[in-house]
Design a protein around this nucleic acid. Structure first.
Lengths: 228, 228
DNA sequence: GCAACAGAAATTTTCGAAAATAAATGAAAT
DNA sequence: ATTTCATTTATTTTCGAAAATTTCTGTTGC
């Protein structure tokens, strides 16, 4: 693995987790210190991240962590619904046993982690398994372009969920794991219409909860307003 | 404009037009000669293009122009239909007068160019106006994410159309400009259902024609099969 | 006080060379 | 003839410094 790839992974990781907060200028000298490398691999990584909209760039003025906004959250969620309900239908149509098994196992792992309390309850493992579950649902769609856009939008929306998770703001009156279970069940039953509706509702509820918590700004250190 | 931006524009241009054919290794020494610059800006541009899937990269083995395949053409077209029919509906719902005017003017410019013959009939102007027309249709959707994916998929599918255009393989039994006209008319009439169907048919016919010409390979210098 | 400007400092961008790795070549052995 | 291995060549990757540009700071003039 080259240094440029390590830089890409590390920067992406730190941006998505909010360790590099939205709007933060990404100075090459700082990054070189932080990740222990020279400018070349860092600039290559930043260029990739710019193409993925996780970083913004301005000519001769360097790079910044891409800002967040409620508008973007709604936009990304709407598009996720369009793309993923279609991908889910395609998966239900085309998915084989390996695809179905993937859903079962990733749902199991997700539920196990969601049930943990105390020191084992770490949100990074939970988040990783949540991602794996949603990817498993669509894995049968047989469309590389769809899967790429899924990953892009997942990363984009993950940036909004993580600060809320970190503030341990639990959604009230909502059993997220039950939603995942019902979604998996309808999918494995090959009930495309039901599964699509459940997926859409899952995302709409999530964005509602997030928008609620973020706009009331109760204890969530989310710099939605970037004063440039 | 920095050299890295120039490199990005030039490489993107040459890849989409097929002047750098699919699968071609992109050696830094060659590119440095071709575009008159050093390695740094070239590598930055290549990293952006890699993120956009116009270029492939292998660790320590450099970059290549991304290959083409009929599978990818079908995949990209299917996803375009999903995303763009939805975006068109949203535009019809939200679009203002400026949006509608944009459709009228871009359609006019496209038709003018399509009618030209002789020395004025240049496919690059035609292609540019075709792109502008399709972008104008969706410009009212008010969704930056949708527009980004539109641009990605437009570029991806443009790579398949251009070799066919260059071989001046005219689609038989098809009046493409009439399709554009009908599509614009339904859109301006705010008939979302009709416009969506017309857009879908427009893409399905195009991919049919392309697949026909490409797989029969009649005079189309399209290296669909990349022997790596 | 503050606007305009000059100079200094900080920062990005680019180059040229060095280091690291892969690919090609050719000699030796079987 | 073919494989194996060492050597050379080609190529990518990375660094460190130079060049270009922006940003900051303090001074002058009003």
């Amino acid at each position: 693995m080259t240094l440029a790839q390590k830089a890409y992974d590390a920067l992406r990781h730190d941006i998505i987790r909010g360790e590099l907060p939205p709007g933060r200028p990404l100075r090459l000298a700082d990054l070189g210190e932080r990740y222990g490398m020279g400018f070349s691999p860092l600039r290559e990584a930043l260029n990739r991240l710019q193409a993925e909209r996780l970083v913004t760039a301005e000519s001769l003025r360097g790079f910044r962590v891409a800002p967040l906004s409620l508008d973007e959250l709604h936009d990304a969620t709407s598009l996720r619904i369009v793309i993923e309900t279609e991908a889910l239908k395609a998966s239900i149509k085309n998915g084989d046993d390996a695809w179905a098994s993937g859903i079962v196992s990733s749902l199991y792992a997700l539920n196990v982690q969601a049930a943990r309390t105390g020191p084992e309850a770490d949100i990074w493992t939970l988040e990783k398994r949540h991602h794996a579950f949603h990817r498993a649902l669509l894995a049968g769609c047989n469309s590389p372009w769809t899967l790429e856009f899924f990953e892009r939008l997942y990363a984009a929306t993950e940036r909004y969920r993580i600060p809320v998770l970190l503030a341990s703001a639990r959604p009230v009156g909502r059993d997220v794991q039950a939603e995942h279970g019902a979604l998996a069940e309808a999918t494995l039953d090959r009930d495309a219409d039901k599964a699509s509706v459940l997926l859409e509702q899952h995302y709409l509820r999530t964005v509602e909860d997030l928008a609620e918590v973020i706009s009331s700004s109760k204890g969530v250190p989310l710099p939605v307003r970037q004063t440039v």
